[in-house]
Design a protein around this nucleic acid. Structure first.
Lengths: 338, 338
DNA sequence: TTGTACGCGTTATCAT
DNA sequence: ATGATAACGCGTACAA
């Protein structure tokens, strides 16, 4: 493997200085057309590539942004990242991805690493909760711009991009009410993450608006996996008065519930309606197809990227923008009685 | 936002030189315990972070690897990336992700960019075909190690990690034969990508082994989306002698076919068996669940990362390793007659 | 044990 | 229009 050519190598070859080469390559108008062309030609011949590390060191801008998510191989996060990439790549930025596995210690290390790597900003869906967020506080006060998306923390002076989880919860629940459901259960994800509380509050307020009593028996806490949903549904159906609908904060959990209900011959949507959250790809292929609240992950990624770009333009200001994207209820068979 | 502290700032604070600070921070044994502790304490107090850019520029190693895939929000690629991340992160590497959108011009630019960014290596699932691979040849000869995975190109001196697509195609087809299927169609993806040809060849050889005639009418070329699969199935079922099974190189295409078959009341697996490829998550949740060939994406990612690590250890050698992982046929209801 | 001086590759500032 | 030099932050060979 040959050493990479530098502007010095080109300079030596042409018996000029590196400064001139640099200017020629950057199309500085003060350079004569002749040398400019000569330099470009020689650069191509020597297979010269600009060393962005040196540029970054000099300019103080790495043109890299860090993206931190719990897992990358979940459709939601992968799509958010795609949105970020699509928005930032044309502006010359690279995206450095890290996954925390929902481990806050690991998340701290990752953030440290990214800052060490001189990223120009960090776009993050955090695994920290409001209880332990103080551990992050220190980092945030420092020099790297932070943008939170989806799983956010409310710090002063940091921007956030979320969807309207409250509205999503409200719309989903109200939709079930309009379908004639009287006893609507809710799958809650107990991670002390704000967005799940928002969805729960939307659910509660929809009940309230329609004067339907709130029963704590109908609220089941679970993790967002299929097995937990199965157990939750079993528990619900063994209540003295079982529910006739579920609004779930997680599609995966709901999937388990649907499989269980089908196994005991409960007819969906005739006898029982369900609505999930996230609009995971599988929801549209199942029989019956599952209604779900879409989170527009691509748009969220693009928006987070835009907020980041705006933030680094305004430089020292530390603007505090809180973008809330709409939550879109997608109605499918699982909650369509007529 | 405050400027970041450097070793010079620490040196000034302590009235020593930057060199001493550097040595102390790196726990150089020649530094007295006293100053070492003092330096560490001051560094912490001043919130010092090592600038990896400077380190990278000096050492010539960025500790970044580029990962290039067609799309990131497809389960297969997201999972491969997760495998790469999980393997490389503990070794101090960062992963820079880029997606080509299957655009070879964009792919060339991305590679250029990554090389400019001084990545220590590039792990890539390419959108180039053997026909136009010469455009990449030039890059590969240069200083950055390339590892191809899944969609590979066969260059001398570059390593590849794939699954055994031929075996996957063979096993899937033979399995259908064992189920009693006599007229097995095949969905082929016509992108001139080697792995699709390998799957087709596995299919052909399985037919050959069991003395079943090959009919070109039963080979349908399509893109890997649902709509194309639907049309393909329609076409097949209108043949004078329609098939009684499909082995599809793409789960998404197969999904469309299944939906179509169900719409015309063809019973799966009783009247018609299907097997897909990729083991997309939705295959296990559908009714009936869909048999598919698993590509072990996490393992592929880990293996690609390992090959990369081995390659940079052996430095100048340019080893040419070709790892082939097993393809695992997952049998589900869609091809289980008994 | 610590200080001095240099280089990594680039661009910007000041000369010429 | 071009050259010379400094600077970005770090590690290290050489000196002391």
């Amino acid at each position: 493997m040959s050493k990479k050519a530098t502007i010095y190598d080109i300079a030596k070859e042409l018996k000029i200085t590196a400064a001139t080469v640099s200017r020629a390559l950057n199309n500085n108008p003060k350079i004569s057309k002749k040398t400019r062309e000569l330099v470009h030609a020689t650069a191509a011949k020597m297979n010269y590539k600009q060393n962005k590390l040196a540029l970054a060191l000099k300019s103080g801008k790495s043109k890299n942004v860090g993206v931190v998510v719990p897992f990358i191989n979940k459709n939601f996060f992968a799509s958010v990242i795609r949105g970020i990439e699509d928005e930032l790549y044309p502006k010359g930025f690279h995206v450095i991805i890290s996954q925390t596995h929902e481990d806050v210690d690991r998340e701290k290390k990752i953030i440290q690493n990214l800052i060490n790597a001189q990223v120009d900003g960090i776009l993050i869906s955090t695994s920290f909760t409001n209880e332990n967020k103080e551990q992050l506080n220190q980092e945030l006060k420092k020099s790297t711009p932070f943008i939170f998306f989806d799983r956010v923390l409310n710090f002063d002076g940091t921007s956030t991009v979320t969807i309207d989880d409250y509205q999503g919860g409200f719309d989903a629940t109200e939709h079930l009410i309009y379908q004639g459901c009287k006893r609507i259960a809710h799958f809650y994800v107990d991670q002390n993450i704000e967005l799940y509380n928002n969805r729960l509050n939307g659910y509660k307020d929809a009940l309230l608006k329609h004067r339907i009593a709130y029963h704590s028996d109908y609220i089941i806490s679970l993790t967002s996996d299929m097995e937990a949903g199965k157990e939750a549904a079993e528990k619900l159906m063994k209540l003295p008065v079982p529910p006739d609908a579920i609004f779930s904060s997680t599609d995966n959990g709901l999937l388990g519930a649907v499989k269980y209900l089908q196994s005991i011959s409960v007819k969906i949507p005739e006898d029982f309606c369900v609505v999930g959250f996230s609009n995971e790809p599988f929801t549209q292929f199942l029989e019956p197809s599952i209604s779900s609240v879409d989170q527009s992950p691509m748009e969220m990624g693009k928006m987070a990227a835009k907020v980041f770009l705006k933030q680094i333009e305004n430089d020292e200001s530390g603007i505090d923008e809180n973008v809330v994207l709409p939550a879109k209820l997608i109605i499918r068979k699982s909650s369509s009685k007529q």
